[in-house]
C-alpha cells in the first residue's frame, strides 16, 4: 500500500466515523421523540389544553401551565432583550480594549456556563426576598432573564462583529455619528442574527424548572395569571410533578405535556430560522 492509498483509507475511515457521530445524536433524538409521541399524542385534545390541574389524570389539563410558560417567555424576552442588546453594542462598538472590558468579557462568557439553579438561588435572595416581590411571575422572569442575558450578549456581539467594516466606514464618511451608524446601519444589518440568539436563549429558558421552583413557582395554580404580579406555574414543573406520581395515567399526561413543550421550543426555533433566512435574503451589500 502506498502512502497516498493509506491516506485515502484514513480519510474514508474518518468519514465513516463522522457519519456515525452525527447519527448518534440524531438516533437518540429520534428514539426520544418516537417514545414520547407514542406515549402522549393520544392524550392531547382541546380539553387537555384548556383544563385546570386535577387529581384525576384523565381530567387534568395544562391550561395554567402553558399560560404561565407563555407569560414567563414574554416577560423574560421584554427584560433580557433590551439589556442584552445594549450590553452587546457597548462591548462591541464603544468599549475600549482596556483591562476592564477584558475582565467584563471573560466574566460574561463564564456566566453563560453557570448552572441554572444558581440563578434560581440568586433570584430568590435578590428579587423574592430583598426586593420583596414574592414568588410571582415577574420574579421568575427576572431570574430567567439573568440566566439568558449572557447568551444574548454573546450572540449580539457575534452578529455585530459580522457586519463588514466598510458599512461603518461608509456611514462615517457620510458624516454620520457613531450612534447614527449603530442605529441605522449596524443594528438593522445584524438584527436577524441578534434575534436568532434571543430566541434560542428563550427556548432554553422555556425548559427550566429548577430555578423557578426555587423562586417559588407553584405546582397547583387553578387560575390563569392576569398580571406579572400573579403566582404561576410552568410546563416543566407540571411535567416534573406528573412524572413523580405513582399512577401510570399521569405519566401519559406528562408525555403529552412534553409534546406541547417541544412544540413551543420547535416553534421558537422555527421563527429563529425563518428570521435568519429572511435577513440573509434582504441584505445586499
Amino acid at each position: 500500500m502506498t502512502n497516498s492509498e493509506k491516506n485515502r483509507l484514513k480519510d474514508k475511515a474518518f468519514q465513516v466515523f463522522g457519519i456515525f457521530c452525527t447519527f448518534i445524536g440524531l438516533v437518540v433524538l429520534a428514539i426520544f421523540l418516537i417514545d414520547i409521541v407514542m406515549e402522549g399524542i393520544g392524550r392531547i385534545d382541546w380539553d387537555f389544553l384548556t383544563s385546570l390541574p386535577s387529581r384525576r389524570a384523565a381530567r387534568a389539563g395544562i391550561l395554567t401551565a402553558w399560560a404561565g410558560t407563555l407569560w414567563i417567555l414574554v416577560l423574560s424576552a421584554l427584560i433580557a432583550f433590551p439589556l442584552g442588546i445594549a450590553a452587546g453594542i457597548y462591548l462591541e462598538e464603544y468599549a475600549k480594549k482596556t483591562k476592564l472590558s477584558n475582565f467584563l468579557e471573560i466574566n460574561i462568557a463564564n456566566l453563560a456556563g453557570v448552572p441554572s439553579i444558581i440563578y434560581g438561588l440568586l433570584g430568590l435572595e435578590l428579587f423574592v426576598r430583598m426586593m420583596n416581590l414574592g414568588g410571582i411571575l415577574l420574579a421568575g422572569a427576572l431570574a430567567l432573564s439573568l440566566l439568558i442575558l449572557p447568551i444574548i450578549i454573546v450572540t449580539t456581539r457575534e452578529a455585530i462583529k459580522a457586519v463588514p467594516r466598510t458599512i461603518r466606514d461608509g456611514s462615517f464618511a457620510l458624516g454620520a455619528s457613531k450612534w447614527q451608524t449603530v442605529w441605522n446601519q449596524v443594528l438593522p444589518a445584524s438584527f436577524g442574527g441578534i434575534l436568532t440568539g434571543v430566541i434560542l436563549a428563550l427556548s432554553r429558558a422555556v425548559g427550566e424548572a429548577a430555578p423557578l421552583i426555587v423562586i417559588g413557582a407553584l405546582a397547583y395554580v387553578p387560575f390563569v395569571p392576569k398580571t406579572p404580579m400573579d403566582e404561576f406555574t410552568v410546563l416543566p414543573i407540571q411535567i416534573f410533578n406528573w412524572t413523580s406520581r405513582p399512577q401510570e395515567a399521569f405519566l401519559t399526561n406528562a408525555a403529552a405535556a412534553i409534546i406541547i413543550l417541544l412544540l413551543i421550543t420547535f416553534l421558537l426555533n422555527g421563527i429563529a430560522v425563518y428570521l435568519r433566512h429572511r435577513q440573509q435574503k434582504k441584505i445586499k451589500w
Binding site: 421552583i213 417559588g216 407553584l218 405546582a219 397547583y220 395554580v221 387553578p222 410533578n241
Partner: peptide, 19 residues
C-alpha cells in the same frame, strides 16, 4: 382537596407549591 374546594368556594384562590 383544593380541586374539590373550588366547587365549594370558587372565589378563594388556593395555590400549592412543591418545594
Amino acid at each position: 382537596v383544593a380541586e374539590e374546594y373550588r366547587a365549594e368556594a370558587p372565589d378563594v384562590r388556593v395555590t400549592v407549591g412543591v418545594s
